[in-house]
Amino acid sequence: MIVTIEKDFAEVLKVTKEEDNLFIFGCAGCATLCQTGGEKQVKELGVKLESEGKEIIGYSVLDVPCDERIVRKEFRNNSSIRNADSIIIMACGAGIQSVQKFSPIPIHPVLDSLFLGTIERIGKFYNYCSICGNCVLEDTQNLCPITRCAKGLLNGPCGGMNEGKCEVNSELDCVWVLIYEAMEKKGNVNNLKLFREPRNWVQSFVFKSE
């Protein structure tokens, strides 16, 4: 799922400075799981904005904002949105941009999208995949060097690796050591000597569905 965090409230006030009547969109998908754009957070933000003198025209937790069909239907069926000066949207960048397509009034994103997260429990997420368009996991013991190596190296660790930790942060495992250990268990560490070609980034830029 897409992991998001809230921008500073001061930032929200700044972008809505000229507007008094606000509508808030939340997200019933990832942002609910992340507790950044679920019903609870939408209402809490509403209360905070009201205490700053704003009027909350209404809110709607979309199921899910990154699906344009749902967004289009919301604008068609919910006429009260038109009474607002702008829409605050608590969703990831994908959700924001589908709302942007249909909204007749200004919209303000109030979350920062961080990464595609694997969830251990609420509030504990791992950044394991950066959706690179060309998955190499088959060759790397299903541990992603594109995302989990700070340099995205494909042919083994850099010289900064030590005691299994990454040079960037000694609390982070060097993924190449994890890959090496997984290979060691299977008795095929020599696979590390196989050369992996430079990545082809084309797919991530030109992919179009249909």
């Binding site: 190296l153 083994g156 010289g159 430079p198």
Partner: peptide
């Protein structure tokens, strides 16, 4: 050399490249 990560240097905000690794 792959090069120490920008986070460790004096322009930590910069975009790291690492388009190729040393083997490549």
């Amino acid at each position: 050399l792959s090069g120490d990560h920008p986070l460790l240097g004096d322009h930590p905000e910069s975009k790291p490249v690492y388009d190729l690794d040393v083997s490549q």
